[in-house]
Design a protein around this nucleic acid. Structure first.
Lengths: 252, 252
DNA sequence: CGCCTAGTTGACCAGGTTCAACAACGGTGG
DNA sequence: CCACCGTTGTTGAACCTGGTCAACTAGGCG
């Protein structure tokens, strides 16, 4: 059970990871009115017009209905993400989100958060960074969806999720510089993947079989294993630079 | 011929359209070091790491090579756009741009612009707005590319371009509240459209023929006519809200 | 006049969708 | 404990959208 004051602690933690906050800034964030919410799988996130939320734990997706009543997933959101940051900038607009696993959310009042931004240049800058990265990821998805064929497309998505999970979940017993994890818990059904990849469920299934046949992944019961990240990335044409996860990737 | 000081005037004009600037802010912008560039069709925009540019006039696209050497267009940029604003936030990253028509560009030093942002909250806020809109447009493209079939997809892109052109180009002899223009100069080849839509040139051609057969558009020699905007938007599933062109669209 | 680019057409093929059926599994209630 | 049911994954076959190849047309410009 998440106590209400942990919501602010979580936001503070996220900011501290990326910024050096002054004491007065920390105080402002800590004083934000907030509450938490517990979600079950497939539960839509119902937000009033003045709410911005942080994912404390779990997976969500942003989606939109297209064409004949098909769900198109536009984004995945993992622990630590703020899916609708853009609400701080574009008040009129609301995307739809739904939980893909049991989730804990921290809900903040957009107007209150905006006031904090107006006082703290550092936090404003971080919000800009989040927005810029969101745009970059979306553009990478454009290339992935329109420019790659289905097997590479699926591989690319899995690479992205793996890298983001590595960054979102504190590594378990891994010494610095060690190879990234190869096993991930990914609560997506093949239908979910299909809705993100723009493929039918049936074809998604066959694409995954193809990846398995090439020993690029194993994926069953929500558990993904990538035996050779390099090889999967090569098939996918994947370069993690667009995720901008670390300040400056030192590539010697 | 564009004189160098007009570059700053253009940037100022764009900012004034969207913000109420103080005199000292105008002075800062006017003092920015800048120069202009003239581009011909298909000329790639070569930028050093510290350059942000504004489109004074003409069309460009942002693109990326995917898969087998196919160009995937990620974005179109019209007069008044700042294609690589994100450079102000994510210094490491550089997308590629190329001119789709003869263009005039205004080039600014990113570091100098960033200094201005640090002094002016208003300008920082506007940059955030641009980033948020960029993300929204990219996400709409995701839905369009993955979720709609080719005819609707092409219709949607044409709707977006038409609406953006209406906003970018000052209306010619149109009284307020009047119906939007129906004729546009669009310097795109069918190959360009295909690269944006994720379709082959041949199929793009057939899709356009289909749109013509349904009397939804005429499109020849770079001139697009949309006889009935409503009907095209209906086919496309197009809702211009995601473009966030006006503060609050009053739809009574 | 001749070349180059953009647009157009037809024929064929491949990738992806759709439909329908079935298997595997977990949860629920009798 | 077991029978039942709903969800997820899997398979096969027919069908259709879009890709590829190749040829040809129509302009624009030197």
């Amino acid at each position: 059970m998440i106590r209400s004051d942990l919501t602010n602690e979580a936001l503070l933690g996220k900011l501290r990871q990326n910024l050096r906050l002054e004491a007065w800034e920390e105080a402002l964030v800590a004083a934000l009115p907030a509450h938490d919410a517990v979600m079950v799988r497939d539960q839509p996130v119902m937000l009033d017009a003045d709410t911005v939320f942080l994912v404390l734990d779990g997976w969500l997706c942003g989606y939109q209905m297209a064409g004949d009543g098909e769900r198109q997933i536009k984004s995945f959101h993992l622990t630590g993400d703020i899916p609708n940051v853009s609400r701080l900038i574009l008040p009129g607009y609301a995307s739809q989100y739904t939980a893909l696993s049991p989730c804990h959310l921290a809900l903040f009042r957009a107007s209150a958060l905006k006031e904090v931004c107006q006082k703290s240049v550092a936090i404003t800058g971080y919000v800009s960074r989040l927005l810029a990265i969101e745009a970059r990821i979306a553009q990478e998805w454009i290339v992935n969806l329109a420019g790659r064929k289905s097997v590479a497309r699926a591989a690319h998505l899995l690479c992205e999720l793996a890298v983001r999970l590595d960054a979102a979940v504190p590594k378990q017993a891994s010494s610095p510089g060690q190879a990234p994890n190869s096993g991930y818990v990914i609560p997506l059904t093949q239908t979910d993947l299909g809705d993100a990849l723009g493929l039918s469920t049936v074809h998604t299934n066959r694409v995954l079989q193809e990846l398995r046949a090439q020993h690029l992944i194993t994926f069953a019961a929500g558990h993904l294993v990538i035996p050779d990240r390099e090889r999967l990335a090569a098939v996918a044409g994947f370069d993690p630079a667009y995720l901008h996860l670390k300040a400056a990737p030192v590539t010697a």
